[in-house]
Design a protein around this nucleic acid. Sequence first.
DNA 1: CGCGAAAGTTTGCGCGCGTAAAAAAATTGT
DNA 2: ACAATTTTTTTACGCGCGCAAACTTTCGCG
Lengths: 343, 343
Amino acid sequence: MKFSKIKNMEEFAAVSGISRPTVSKYFNDPSSVRDSTRARIEAALERYDYRPNLFAVNQNRRLTKNVGIVVPYLADPFFAEIARRIEQRCIAAGLRPTLYSAHGQQALENDILDALRDLRPAGVLMAPLGRASDRSQVERFCRDVPTVLFDSNIEGIGEAFVGSDNFSFVSQTVEYLTRTGEPPAFFEMRIPANPNANKRRLAYIKMMDRLGFEPHIVKAEGEGWAFEDIGRRGALKVLQDGSLPTNSILCSNDRLAIGFLSACYALGINVGSGEGCAIRVASNDDHPFSKFTCPPLTTAAHDYDSVANRSVETLLEVIESGGRLATRTETLFPAKMILRESA
Amino acid sequence: MKFSKIKNMEEFAAVSGISRPTVSKYFNDPSSVRDSTRARIEAALERYDYRPNLFAVNQNRRLTKNVGIVVPYLADPFFAEIARRIEQRCIAAGLRPTLYSAHGQQALENDILDALRDLRPAGVLMAPLGRASDRSQVERFCRDVPTVLFDSNIEGIGEAFVGSDNFSFVSQTVEYLTRTGEPPAFFEMRIPANPNANKRRLAYIKMMDRLGFEPHIVKAEGEGWAFEDIGRRGALKVLQDGSLPTNSILCSNDRLAIGFLSACYALGINVGSGEGCAIRVASNDDHPFSKFTCPPLTTAAHDYDSVANRSVETLLEVIESGGRLATRTETLFPAKMILRESA
DNA sequence: CGCGAAAGTTTGCGCGCGTAAAAAAATTGT
DNA sequence: ACAATTTTTTTACGCGCGCAAACTTTCGCG
């Protein structure tokens, strides 16, 4: 508001008594103009409120400050949380993030990539859908736009990958469950959406082998992103037909575990290690709500902060080195066991 | 990919043998060109992949197809879910939505509004932070950009409001709890972020009055968006010092209720109406995870679909009538009771 | 076949800003 | 105080496309 309205840089340059190109320089880097002119511009900014148009700015710039953040399903609190942190990291680094969710749909993911090209982003942080991703489209995109993948990896695509070390997750949970009770069965979706699920299954098998136990994998039917519901149905089934080979269960992820706990409650089965408990349930992710389940969920926690920080740091490196990295790095952060009452 | 790369409309017009203005017309409305030329353009589209630059298109258009969607806190699954539906409705209506989260911060909400101006959106769908919103900024924004508020209302601001009828929510839950047991106490945050909370408290008091009972309001300390944690702490406090005046609790919202259930579990208090249950807990919202709590939460459900649909419909009306509505309408959808085991 | 309307083409400007090159002005050093 | 910088101004063009006016071609129809 302040005084009259300024519609473009031309007008603002006029009222500040400075030429437009110099004003343009100022906005791209205030320290690039002489102190006295910077003072005059900032004096004008006090009196008139003007900001360069975000989209016009990027139309003809060599390198923009835009970054895209793409997640597969934003209504999943895990992605909401990691996206939130990444977004704030980007803002702190002086970038302009825009967040997109593929809502679990390949077509939408492709549309997002198309829209992202037009944004002319300096870089993109992307957690792909995984199995449902259109690999060739993602690959093409990464050739055009410097991209760092996070959370779920696609081998060889993007300048780098930052995520969690699934083996660290599963080895810790399996070890813990085994040490404090029975070796666990592994509970997962038959057709997992996310590549991490496959790595976790393999890690489970490997750990069980290493410890000298027979692996038991329990599959829940159902596809899509309604993990809790799928977990609940799958759990009801195996709990009712008594096909569960053990009294301890390791769920592939917390959302399935939430469904599993819900099924246990419905059947009157007490979960935990204490008196009167029939089954122990542990999981992976440390989903934001795992702390509040009943019983609270024992789980291997993502290092949310490290993944978010390193993703953004890596993207900044990529951008600074001109959009390409000499070698594709994969950074995996270990899990941290969170012991709660469910196991 | 296909053949060579097309960088702009000029080039595409050349290879398709049609003039650029006509091609431009085609992309704005394919039916506005003659069948034979449409066929030629589409034949060219088969051979070359070209799409007009999204941001350049909007630079000089009278009316864009952009819409902004602003929510206060996207890591809250309620907002993630409603935003997801609104986003998909917009896409279905041929609009181009962009989603923003204020992450609970006033400064961010203001930044988002600034960025949205530059997007030149045809309209904006906004769920404001509420108490934390910078009212004058939001008001200014709504004067410049046609905006429909949803979920939380700010009196007199925006072209319309679409949300849920808090009285319908609370009256049903209070009535149900009273009819099937004791009249409830009301559990809420001392300083609620959201204006709906205040309306719910007032509705509770009114209902209790009407039914001839003394209202009891239990306040949980804490600010911010970590509702579950605040609910849990608050519940632990009142459950431990025995200050709860009743055996039935109505939580202002489901996230608080999830915290409350967690506290009950920690203290070994059984929740529900059955044998051996000491307390009944009901709530409002039908949060996506309420179905999976232990016990599953009895709650008054938002009509997610209606709110999402009507919001988008209303915005379309606003846009069609040139950005302004004769009178500001407020549409409130009633709640639907979801009976589960917690009460 | 000729006529008027409809559709397409040409031409040119505008959106708001980045950026490059050359000229002018202000600052610096001595 | 004068040459040697540094900074700013001027001028001009580009980004990718929308839009309007005037003109030309095409189409439908009697």
